[in-house]
Amino acid sequence: MTRVQRERKLEGPGVLTVRVKEKVQSTDVIAEVQPQPQHHFLDLASALGVSDAEAARLLRVDLGSNVEAGQVLAGPTGIARRTVRAPANGKVLSLSRGRVLFEAREGARAVHAGVPGEVTASDGASSIVISAVGALVQGAWGNGRRGWGVLRDVGESRSARLEPHELDMILRGAVVLVGVVDNPKSLHLATEIPVRGLVCGSMASELIPTALHMPYPILLTEGFGSTSMNSPTYDLLSTHAGREASLEAPLLEPYETQQPEILVPLPATQDLRSPERIVQLEPGVRVRALRAPHVGAVGSLLHLMPGVESFPSGILARSAMVELEGIGSVPVPLSNLEVIA
């Protein structure tokens, strides 16, 4: 169990609706954000049949003020009492050479907390930090979405494949836990139910284009192919089946701070610290193999090997002797190991 900080940044202009020290639930709205506005030039001079200077004089709204769709922006003028009206809700930003730049705004979109916790920081304008406590698992890949729901273990095994027939209405609103996904039908059916998220060990890479279009978050703990979910992750998550889980499944982007994560919120029972950012590779550290021949296997680091080790590929690499569960003691290149807490 650990304490995590989840930052929520507004992607455009908007307002925060929560304050520091406020407690939030996953479903709470923490901000309202405006979609990217569209801009339009409205040629007042042509529309009113007047000169540029006269058009400026006929402007009926202040620059920067909000206007509603249909509201008169300029005019009336002439025998026909011609006017120019706002094409949408928005504001007039500037006036130059007889034309105005109009910014059209659509309705605000709600931003949800996505995780239960406490707001611990805010810049008051565009970002807040929510501190949450729970069981945290870091993933390898996400489809660019975020969500939450009750965790359900479908296959009851870390290597179970998600078959289309297993997706029934009992999974409505659930975050589905499964070993492997290799059938596009399963992803589509999950949309129809709809599920609120999918956590799997691995997925066939040819499903990436489909996964990117799914409206729910998909998070892979291992990567692409048919690798089972690693046993500590599966054991942890399946133990918490029935509890709410929060999924952050950002796209793979270099130099982004948010990594794919699953958080199962739990009541804080002790003095908790944030996870260590650097863990030294030393005897006793729990590790996971990232590459063949033992991809996905977990175990304990026995010792760092002196010099470099030769592998079947012929590559020489600095390595560690690792006791992998169900496999035994094997040398693994340090580059192919990941520390797990």
Binding site: A140, G223, L252, R291, A292, P293, S313, V332, S335, N336
Partner: peptide
């Protein structure tokens, strides 16, 4: 996903 990993197997 794992750019720093190296091929330990000949097939890789």
């Amino acid at each position: 996903i794992y750019p720093s990993t190296i091929p330990a197997e000949l097939s890789d």
